[in-house]
């Protein structure tokens, strides 16, 4: 297989809030010959989009330009970063006036956005670039008796005409990748719904009720565990669920794992890199790393 090289866009939260996502991502990609290059990126721009459009586009454009300068495609494990970079790319492509102004500012530090590089989410890289056959071939200990509910995450999936991630109404990439690990992907009605995290600091009540609806649905659909592939979704379902819902008698805790952890487990990778123990809510049925 041809060696693949990406600029690794980990986003703001991974280093201090979800280290296991970085270590597990690196660990599962390594056997497939994927090299991740660390560049000094800034915030993707998502958090500021609520109040200021240009600063969101510029933040994203700067990241894109930094990677473009190194002629590297971006790989991000976070769906919010992924979506935001894709949205910005779309606006830059579509709006000449905006592109001109952004490039003028970028030029001050010798950067430019030309739209020459691709932004990829880790699931796409695993499924398309590495390919399912290679993933199947890498499995050492299939996770036979696990029922996993894939949580798709909004910003990777929609709006489909901008992100081009998968079919927005009937996506299958996540189920395919879960099947590869030997676990059973669960069909659940709310799999495409929002996790609630974008409202976490803005309106806690709604944020929690969005999450509660999903957890209840996953449990009713027979899932042992949720599976995410997004920094924010995982923080919501793991750390926040643990902190906020442990006293909520209406629901039993629903563990959530990162897809890279799940895959790593089935590839027989060690706990040291997978960081299963860092997850706040443990899944009893999950085999030990």
């Amino acid at each position: 297989m041809k060696a693949m090289k990406f600029a690794f866009f980990k986003g703001c939260k991974i280093p201090y809030y979800l280290e296991q996502y970085e270590t597990s991502t690196r660990a599962v990609l390594k056997p497939f010959g994927v090299r991740l290059v660390d560049l000094e990126f800034n915030c993707c721009g998502y958090p500021n989009r609520d109040i200021h459009f240009e600063s969101f586009v510029f933040s994203a454009a700067r990241n894109l330009a930094i990677a473009e300068k190194k002629r590297l495609d971006i790989l991000t494990p976070c769906k919010c970063c992924y979506g935001t970079l894709k949205y910005a790319q779309h606006f830059l492509k579509e709006n000449e006036h905006l592109r001109g102004d952004i490039n003028k500012e970028l030029a001050r530090e010798g950067l430019a956005w030309r739209g020459k590089i691709a932004v990829k989410h880790i699931l796409t890289v695993l499924c398309d670039d590495i390919g399912l056959p290679a993933i199947y071939a890498s499995i050492r200990s299939p996770l036979g008796n696990l029922s996993i509910a894939p949580h798709y995450g909004c910003h990777a999936l929609r709006p489909s005409d901008i992100v081009h991630f998968d079919d927005p109404l009937a996506p299958s990439i996540f189920e395919d990748l879960i099947s590869a690990t030997g676990a059973k992907p669960v069909e659940w009605p709310r799999r495409l719904d929002c996790c609630g995290n974008p409202l976490w600091v803005k309106n806690r009540g709604i944020s929690l009720s969005l999450m509660r609806a999903k957890i209840t649905d996953a449990a009713e659909s027979g899932a042992d565990c949720l599976c995410t592939a997004c920094t924010y979704c995982q923080i919501q379902f793991d750390a926040i669920q643990n902190a906020e819902m442990s006293e909520d008698s209406r629901i039993t805790p629903m563990p959530s794992v990162l897809y890279t952890q799940l895959l790593g487990l089935s590839m027989g990778l060690p706990e040291r890199v997978l960081g299963m123990k860092r997850n706040h809510i443990q899944c009893d049925k999950m085999p030990r790393a």
Binding site: R158, P159, D193, L199, N203, I206
Partner: peptide
């Protein structure tokens, strides 16, 4: 202000209106 930016509205709009982006603006 409570929009969770999930883009469901925009994705599903039969008229192709950019609802979420309007809310952002």
């Amino acid at each position: 202000w409570d929009c969770t930016t999930c883009y469901q509205c925009q994705e599903h709009c039969p008229q192709g209106i950019r609802v979420t982006e309007i809310i952002y603006e």
